[in-house]
């Protein structure tokens, strides 16, 4: 069922992309760099649980690349890519010990991993270890946002069904 799989992944990618582009138009929540809702992650969380590792990775990579073209810049790509990569790996690892009703936990930890990746890139880019001082506030806000996106993904799974 190649066509079905392709259609499904393309659809999830475009939904994630639309959410991402719309969120990028909204004014930033706070004056602290890197704090965002990350609503497009609803699709990533859903995909990790519903369509499997390889497809989730493809969807995330496509969304990050296209999102950079539509609503980002080359310098934000590094942050998105590092954060997204760590987030995905964390969630894929956690999936082994989580049920579909515990997606929120995967999302919370995934979001924290995302922020850790961003900070790592920021420290490398600016060459300033002192940026680690941002880590606690980013983790706290990331976990809050992750809880919200995780619950959304859970609701989504409930509505349109799980593994397919």
């Amino acid at each position: 069922m190649q066509t079905r799989r392709l259609t499904r992944d393309a659809m999830l990618t475009s939904v994630a992309l639309i959410i991402f582009v719309i969120e990028a138009q909204l004014p930033p929540l706070t004056s602290i760099p890197g704090i965002r809702m990350g609503l497009a992650n609803i699709i990533t969380v859903y995909a990790v649980f519903a369509v499997g590792a390889a497809d989730a990775a493809v969807i995330l990579a496509a969304r990050i690349l296209l999102g950079t073209i539509f609503a980002g810049s080359l310098s934000t790509l590094m942050y998105s890519a590092a954060g997204g990569c760590l987030c995905l790996l964390a969630m894929l690892a956690l999936k082994r010990v989580l049920t579909e009703r515990q997606m929120w936990a995967a999302s919370v930890i995934g979001a924290a991993a995302h922020n850790a990746g961003q900070i790592a890139v920021a420290v490398a880019v600016t060459g300033t270890i002192g940026l680690l001082a941002y880590l606690p506030v980013l983790l706290a806000s990331g976990m809050t946002a992750g809880l919200f996106t995780g619950l959304c993904a859970q609701a989504l799974t409930k509505r349109i069904g799980g593994r397919r």
Binding site: P33, S73, A122, V125, T128, G130, L131, V137
Partner: peptide
Amino acid sequence: AVPIVCLPHRLV
């Protein structure tokens, strides 16, 4: 202890 950062300009 939290620095001001301008990531596009790599200024801290």
